[in-house]
């Protein structure tokens, strides 16, 4: 007979899953909405995927979006897609901290550490 190790924390655990699911679904649809808008701008502006795109530059998002350039909205959407899992892990970390689950706090912090290392390494290599 297998004991139910999740019984003790079943309530908070289910709440946590629901919260994390809502974050995940909301962020995914938001980012896909941005990408959809960017594709509509591409179609409206007659921009082809085979055209030369503007390079990724976080400092230009706002200017590109205000100028109605599809790249600006597309970059924002793509960064949002790539960032969604990080938002999900951060939401989990906060919930585990609140519930006092130290091992899972360490796991979540470790994942965020690996993602931060990706950014640092990519920036270092790019430079």
């Amino acid at each position: 007979m297998i004991s139910d190790p999740t019984n003790r924390a079943a309530g908070p655990s289910l709440d946590l899953e629901r919260r994390v699911a809502n974050v995940l679904i909301g962020a995914t649809y938001l980012s896909l909405g941005l990408i959809g808008l960017g594709v509509l701008l591409m179609i409206a502006g007659g921009v082809s995927p085979l055209d030369q795109a503007l390079a990724f530059d976080p400092g230009r998002f706002v200017d590109d979006i205000l100028a109605g350039r599809p790249e600006g909205v597309l970059w924002l959407g793509l960064v949002a897609v790539i960032g969604t899992p990080t938002v999900r892990v951060t939401a989990s970390l906060i919930s585990y901290l609140r519930d006092g689950e130290r091992p899972m706090v360490l796991v979540a912090a470790g994942i965020l550490g690996v993602i931060a290392a990706s950014v640092l390494l990519a920036t270092g290599l790019g430079g």
Binding site: I35, G38, V39, M42, V47, S48, P49, L50, D51, A53, L54, A55, F56, P70, E71, L74, W75, G77, L78, V79, I82, I115, S118, V119, L121, A122, T123, L125, G126
Partner: peptide, 17 residues
Amino acid sequence: AIIYLLRGEIDPLVAGP
């Protein structure tokens, strides 16, 4: 994907559609 993005290997005009 972060590494591909920051190293300029993701084209938004291809990735979007």
